[in-house]
Design a protein around this nucleic acid. Structure first.
Length: 372
DNA sequence: AAAGCGGGGCA
DNA sequence: TGCCCAGCTTT
């Protein structure tokens, strides 16, 4: 789709005028430091501003410069990231920080291609940093832009396809104000977030409505189109929570699966949940310890359920206590068969130091409450 | 081209 | 409950 310059001018000017009146004050607005822009953009990937804001404040306080971030242990970065989701962002953030700090002397890339080569930086994030920090003319294409352009131009192509990506990015680049790329990108994303929002958009007071195809055809709620998502697969986790004195056995989740690098308890993944959980306790214990007789079973909690983007996880927690004077028994099956860290963690350090998936943190919190 | 990867908010 | 969110990476 090629648009004439008059139409592009109309779109641009109305949008920028709207932005002057309606923009939200946020800490990264107008920021030119590429480190801060980068940090904010990684946090905001697939994440609402309200959810990401406190994480931005805490991470920036903990790591004021890219060197601070690069020198921190990955587990500390993950702990700061706990609860935000998509944990590969934290791993990539850390890896990119080390690259910038140790191989580039702390100097950020200042071109689109240089930024795009950083781990965790795709087309959107590279365009955002390039335009905000360096005023380079690259148009952002995110969920907001898809929606605004899809409605205004009445585009039928489902947005979650490679074809849409090409069409929309070409369109976005034509509409970009080459003299004010940063301001334009801020404007269209703010506009999508608060005016042309997914549900109940404010069309009656919209400066673009007079030329908006979706509005004129009363199809605002139908656009942009999207292909249906793939159904979520169910997974069933039976956790064995081994406590010895004031310590608990925890292990790190492997790469290449959900919650990579976060910590959990000894895990037995099954094809389903048992009808009667409690009688299964000896079998659960036997999965991990040959000498189950030295364990006392303290009960089972759950099932807990958590929905992820492509999975639904159901979890039961079997709690066992070992006597304090007992030496650590050899697991009947290696707990670290996935070659990850496994260790006894003092109970009082778990919440402070260990990054856990939400479903683990929730169990742990409720267990602590029920034990006092 | 499709799948995998979190968690929160809202109708 | 389903949908969406300042997306990226792997297969």
């Amino acid at each position: 789709m090629v648009i004439n310059s008059e139409e592009a001018h109309f779109f641009r000017e109305r949008l920028l005028a709207w932005h002057v009146e309606h923009q939200r004050p946020l800490p990264w607005k107008g920021e030119r430091d590429p480190y801060k822009v980068w940090l904010s953009e990684i946090i905001l990937q697939q994440t609402r501003v309200e959810q990401g804001l406190p994480y931005y404040e805490r991470l920036l306080a903990a790591y004021p410069t890219v060197e601070h971030l690069a020198q921190a242990p990955l587990d500390d970065v993950l702990k700061h990231w706990q609860g935000l989701g998509y944990y590969s962002r934290a791993r990539n953030l850390h890896a990119a920080a080390q690259y910038i700090a140790f191989e580039r002397g702390g100097v950020f890339p200042d071109t689109f291609e240089g930024l795009r080569a950083l781990k965790g930086v795709g087309d959107y994030t590279a365009a955002a940093i390039a335009s905000f920090a360096f005023n380079l003319p690259h148009a952002v294409l995110d969920g907001n832009v898809y929606r605004v352009l899809g409605r205004f131009f009445g585009i039928e192509t489902p947005v979650n396809t490679p074809e849409a990506r090409k069409r929309f990015s070409a369109l976005a680049q034509q509409l970009l104000d080459p003299m004010r790329p940063g301001a334009y990108n801020q404007a269209i994303m703010d506009f999508g977030a608060s005016q042309c929002r997914p549900r109940q958009p404010l069309c009656e007071q919209c400066p673009l409505a007079v030329r908006c195809v979706a509005f004129q055809q009363r199809r605002v709620e139908q656009l942009p189109r999207k292909n249906p998502p793939t159904p979520r697969q169910q997974r069933f986790f039976l956790y064995a929570v081994f406590q010895k004195g004031r310590s608990v056995w925890m292990q790190q989740r492997p790469m290449g699966d959900i919650w990579a690098n976060l910590y959990e308890f000894a895990l037995w993944e099954t094809e389903g949940l048992p009808e009667e959980p409690a009688p299964l306790a000896p079998q659960v214990a036997a999965r991990f310890f040959a000498e189950a007789s030295s364990l006392s079973f303290h009960g089972v909690l759950g099932p807990y359920r958590q929905t992820l983007s492509h999975r639904v996880v159901h979890a039961l927690f079997y709690v066992f206590q070992m006597s304090v004077d007992e030496e650590l028994l050899a697991p009947s099956q290696p707990l670290d068969q996935r070659a990850v860290t496994a260790q006894w963690i003092p109970v009082e350090e778990v919440e402070k130091r260990i990054a856990m998936p939400k479903i683990i943190a929730q169990f742990w919190r409720e267990k602590a409450l029920s034990c006092r």
